[in-house]
C-alpha cells in the first residue's frame, strides 16, 4: 500500500491558523491533509482556521469532504472558519453542495 506524501504548509499567526492546500486534492491526498490540519488544530487551538486554496490545481468531491469536514470540526471546537483564494474550478465543486452559502469565502490575496 502506498501512502500519500502530500504535505500542507501551515502558518500560525495572531491566533489564525492558515493551511495552504496545494496541488491535487483527491481522496488519496485528502486523507493526509485532513490528518495534518486536525493535528495542528488540536495543538494550537486558534480562534480562526483558514484554508488557502490558491495553490489547488485539481479538486473533486473528496476535497469538498475535506473542506466541509474541517468546517464541522472548527465549528465543534468554537473556531471561526474561512476558505480563501478558490480557483473557478474549485468554486464550481464548492457551489454544487451549496458550500458557498455556509462557508465564508475570501477571494482577496490580502486578508
Amino acid at each position: 500500500m502506498l501512502f500519500s506524501d502530500y504535505n500542507v504548509n501551515i502558518i500560525f499567526e495572531d491566533g489564525v491558523l492558515t493551511a495552504f492546500i496545494k496541488g491535487e486534492v483527491d481522496h488519496h491526498n485528502a486523507v493526509a491533509a485532513r490528518r495534518r490540519i486536525d493535528r495542528e488544530l488540536e495543538e494550537k487551538r486558534p480562534h480562526e482556521l483558514v484554508l488557502d486554496l490558491g495553490g489547488v490545481n485539481f479538486m473533486d468531491s473528496s476535497g469538498l469532504g475535506l473542506i466541509l469536514g474541517r468546517y464541522s470540526k472548527a465549528s465543534e471546537l468554537g473556531i471561526a472558519f474561512a476558505v480563501c483564494n478558490p480557483t473557478p474550478a474549485t468554486m464550481k465543486i464548492l457551489s454544487l453542495a451549496g458550500g458557498e452559502r455556509i462557508i465564508k469565502i475570501i477571494s482577496d490575496e490580502v486578508k
Binding site: 485528502a30 485532513r34 473533486d60 468531491s61 473528496s62 469538498l64 469532504g65 475535506l66 466541509l68 469536514g69 465543486i93 454544487l96 453542495a97
Partner: peptide, 22 residues
C-alpha cells in the same frame, strides 16, 4: 442522491455522482 453516503466517518461528501452528473 446528492449528499447520500454510506461512509460519513470517512468524510465522504456524498457528492460523487452529483459531480459526475453535472
Amino acid at each position: 442522491q446528492p449528499l447520500f453516503t454510506t461512509d460519513p466517518a470517512g468524510e465522504r461528501s456524498g457528492m460523487g455522482f452529483t459531480v459526475m452528473e453535472n
